[in-house]
Computed example of a mutant assay.
Amino acid sequence: MEEIIRNYILFIKKFEGVFNEKYNIVNGLWSDIDKSVSRKGNIGDYKYNFHGRGCRIEYNNIICEYDSGFIDKATINFSVWKLFKFIETNPNLSNMSMNDVYSGILDLIEKKIVEKSLIEEVDTGTYDINKDYLRTLTFERYRK
């Protein structure tokens, strides 16, 4: 499951790199998105739709949905369904049931890669990628 979550994160970061470069975003995607950039469109082979605090990305028939964190917009927030949809539509990842994904997330929580998203100690039913784990990953910037 660790490889799957890494693929999920890298997919998101690659899109964000392409998006940031295209629109010259310097303060971070979630800081600048509402200012002058269309919330729905295409960049190359990416199709995107920003909604609320989240985004749906489609690329080569792979669907990736994610949200910015409730408290800290710099983190990635997701649900079991969103991660399942990414796995289900990605031909490079193994087939898993929704229950397998949930069990895998519990394992990622134990490894401190993912944490339950809490607001004032209330479980939101979603998960955040641990910021310390995000810092350990290197992201290749989009290059033409």
Rank of each mutant, 00 (worst) to 15 (best):
D34L: 09
L118Q: 06
R56T: 11
I63D: 05
K14A: 08
E115Y: 05
G44W: 05
G104K: 05
E121R: 08
T136C: 02
I33K: 15
L10W: 01
L83H: 04
S68Q: 04
I4E: 13
L118F: 07
T136N: 06
I109F: 02
T124A: 04
E140N: 06
F19I: 02
E2R: 13
L118D: 02
Y102K: 11
K82W: 04
I25M: 13
G44M: 07
I12P: 01
T138H: 11
N27T: 09
W30G: 00
V114L: 05
L118H: 03
V37H: 09
E121I: 03
G28K: 06
K40C: 08
N77G: 01
G104P: 07
Y48H: 04
N24I: 10
D128S: 04
E110D: 11
I62A: 12
Y133T: 00
I33M: 13
K111M: 14
M1N: 03
K85D: 12
L106D: 10
S94C: 10
L134E: 01
Y46N: 08
N60L: 09
R6G: 02
K13H: 06
L106R: 12
G52R: 03
R143F: 15
N27H: 14
D45W: 05
N77K: 11
I105Y: 03
N49E: 10
D32A: 07
E58F: 10
K85A: 12
N95K: 13
I113W: 02
V114C: 06
N20Y: 04
K116N: 06
K116F: 05
D32E: 14
K73T: 00
K131V: 11
L93I: 10
V101W: 02
D72A: 00
I62L: 12
D107V: 10
L134H: 00
G125A: 12
F15R: 02
E16Y: 11
L29R: 03
I33P: 01
F86Y: 13
C55F: 04
E3G: 10
S103E: 13
V122Y: 11
N24E: 15
D128Y: 02
D100E: 13
M98A: 07
